[in-house]
Amino acid sequence: MAKRKRQITGAKIEKYIKEGRGQGIGKDYLPWLEIQDVPSDGRATRGKGWTTNRRHEFMSDLERDYFYILDFSDEVTDIREQYPLLPLEETMIIAEEIGVKHPMIRHTGEPVVMTTDILINKF
């Protein structure tokens, strides 16, 4: 039996928004996805950032390694991982305009909130 229900539904999306996920800057940012939200056979890690002074969630070694490079750059002022591309309607319009199918949740048919691995602010 599975430990958690990981299916993302419209209700869960609303819950994430109310929790403040994908919102904030610097130490107040909450990632849209956390390690426990995503099933994985790979390695996921957490680490504290110098730039942001908060815990970061990495879904792969590549994300983590890129973060380390950014974290030690004097030009970077904020690093946000698992940043949601919202509103959902905009990513659906973009997908339609470029002629690709927007990702959907297999069991519910609802659209997936897409994320970018890392969003960087520089001065």
Score class of each variant (00 low, 15 high):
G47I: 04
D65W: 08
R46H: 14
P111N: 10
K12I: 14
N121L: 15
I120G: 03
S40M: 12
F123M: 11
T108Y: 07
A11H: 04
P31S: 15
Q23P: 00
T51G: 00
L33C: 05
T45V: 15
G10E: 09
D117C: 06
I69Q: 02
R6H: 07
S40W: 15
M1V: 15
S40A: 15
K122V: 12
M104C: 12
T9D: 12
G26D: 06
L70R: 00
P87M: 11
E75Q: 14
A2M: 08
P111G: 05
E19P: 06
P31Y: 05
L88I: 13
E57Y: 07
Y16D: 02
I79W: 01
D37T: 05
P31Q: 10
H107T: 10
I25N: 10
D74N: 09
R64K: 10
L70F: 02
E34G: 12
R55N: 12
R80G: 03
P31H: 07
R46S: 11
R21G: 07
V100F: 08
F123H: 12
I105P: 00
E34Y: 15
D65R: 07
N53R: 06
K5P: 09
G22D: 00
D28Y: 13
H56Q: 10
D65Q: 09
Y16H: 02
I17Q: 09
I118Y: 01
E57K: 11
D117F: 06
K122W: 11
D78P: 01
L86F: 05
H102N: 11
R106S: 15
F58C: 04
I13M: 05
I8P: 00
R46Q: 11
V113H: 00
P111C: 07
A2G: 09
M92F: 03
V113T: 04
R64D: 02
L33I: 09
P84Q: 04
R4W: 07
G42Q: 10
H56A: 02
T52M: 08
P103I: 00
E89H: 10
G99C: 06
E19Y: 07
T51N: 01
I98H: 06
V100D: 05
T108H: 10
I13R: 04
Q23I: 03
E63M: 04
N121D: 14
E81C: 12
M104K: 14
I105W: 03
Q23Y: 01
I94E: 01
E34P: 02
A95E: 05
N53V: 08
V76M: 03
